[in-house]
């Protein structure tokens, strides 16, 4: 089973360009209904299917995404 991951998005720096949405293989991200202080709809996590692949972070032009991934469990 795929490892679990999580993303933390700096919503104040997000410009809502949606590049991360197309990069995510598990449709974890979507744009918010709310806007940040600059008026951009920011990217947010909408489900828990994240595997921590960091595809979203590597294409983010504004470097707003931090990615976490659980440690691989060693097989006995």
């Amino acid at each position: 089973m795929a490892r679990k991951g999580d993303v933390v998005i700096n919503i104040e720096r997000c410009k809502g360009c949606e590049v991360c949405l197309t990069a995510c293989p598990h449709e974890v991200l979507a744009l918010s209904n709310e806007v940040n202080s600059k008026g951009y709809h920011y990217a947010m996590k909408v489900n828990s299917a994240c595997t921590g692949c960091a595809n979203c972070a590597i294409v983010c032009p504004d470097a707003v995404i931090t990615v976490y991934r659980e440690k691989a469990v060693k097989k006995a």
Partner: peptide, 17 residues
């Protein structure tokens, strides 16, 4: 939520350089 436990420096795989 269990997944929030993942947000820990040990599990970090990507952050802004």
């Amino acid at each position: 939520m269990a997944e929030n436990n993942l947000v820990h420096p040990d599990n970090l795989v990507y952050e802004k350089t």
